[in-house]
């Protein structure tokens, strides 16, 4: 065991694009299963325009509260809208928001964490603000922010990004703190490279692995949180079909028409499960030492 742990200190941390990383990733059962689950749902969502048997928005009072049948595989809601079609289009919204939040927090949180980890003087104040943001339960903060900003898809992304930025910043900061002590970083400083150059060229590329893993989990968390927001009515405004929104539609009819709420929930679970499995696979493949450090 000692031998394994002594090694990485001498060699630079594994880089995301290191040759063989992809092969190792695809060989990892968690990652493969995760990719399969996530990919299957994502493809269904992306092809919603072709796959959806009905218009997700059109009301039809003659087909209200239809239980699952050959015509409506997953039944209809109180306006007679097809649950399958609404779910397929809801996937699109969930993925857009999840991906958006993962990217925005990666950029903003990554930058904040890099600055905090690299410049000691900035560390204290920045991390106190991050601690304060972390003190609010992420979901509650996102609900409040989304409500204050007003209902729109973009505002949901903004609200969720603010709520999840501290986690990303913390992970990035921790990575930078480790990498900045590596000999090759010392070397770059010694030959007179400017601090910004040292950070961008030498530190960041080697501190990326934890960030990639973390953002996969953030993607999953954002999909879950978006569903909560939509469920409570502060998500993207109606009539946009969202997974959380469809669950909310079925909530008052859980006794008479349980199928309305069940289908979108299963889909959310599959997406999140897929992303979490992918995150686990990435974590193991990129850096086994992260096992306990993240999440």
């Amino acid at each position: 065991m000692a031998g394994v742990e002594a090694l990485p200190a001498a060699a630079p941390a594994p880089r995301v694009k290191a040759p063989g990383a992809l092969a190792r990733l695809l060989a990892h059962p968690s990652f493969r299963w995760g990719l399969l689950l996530f990919g299957a749902v994502a493809v269904c969502g992306l092809l919603a325009d072709w796959l959806a048997p009905y218009d997700p928005l059109r009301n039809n009072f003659r087909t209200r509260f239809q239980p699952p049948s050959e015509t409506f595989w997953f039944g209809t809601d109180r306006f007679g809208r097809d649950i399958l079609s609404r779910t397929l289009f809801g996937i699109q919204v969930s993925l857009r928001i999840g991906l958006g939040v993962a990217l925005v927090t990666a950029l903003v949180g990554g930058a904040i964490g890099a600055v905090a980890g690299f410049w000691r003087r900035a560390d204290g104040p920045i991390m106190r603000v991050m601690d304060a943001l972390m003190a609010f339960p992420a979901v509650l903060l996102a609900i409040a922010l989304a409500a204050a900003l007003g209902p729109s898809e973009l505002n949901v992304i903004v609200a969720l990004s603010i709520a999840y930025v501290p986690r990303t910043a913390r992970v990035m900061r921790a990575g930078v703190l480790v990498v900045r002590e590596f000999p090759f970083v010392e070397g770059a400083r010694a030959i007179g490279a400017s601090p910004t150059r040292v950070l961008l060229r030498h530190v960041l590329p080697n501190a990326m692995a934890p960030l990639v893993v973390q953002q996969t989990y953030v993607f999953a968390l954002a999909v879950l949180a978006e569903a909560v927001l939509s469920f409570l009515g502060v998500g993207p405004p109606p009539p946009t079909p969202t997974l959380g929104g469809v669950i909310a539609d079925g909530r008052d009819f859980i006794q008479e028409a349980p199928w309305i709420s069940i289908t979108p929930g299963v889909v959310i679970a599959l997406v999140v499960l897929g992303l979490n499995l992918m995150g686990d696979g990435l974590r193991d493949a990129l850096d086994p030492r992260l096992r306990t450090a993240i999440r």
Binding site: L224, V228, A269, V272, L277
Partner: peptide
């Protein structure tokens, strides 16, 4: 893994 991948509010509805 399944525990933290399920949307809890939905699970609540299913349990109800």
């Amino acid at each position: 893994l399944i525990g933290f991948s399920l949307p809890d509010f939905w699970l609540g509805l299913v349990f109800v």
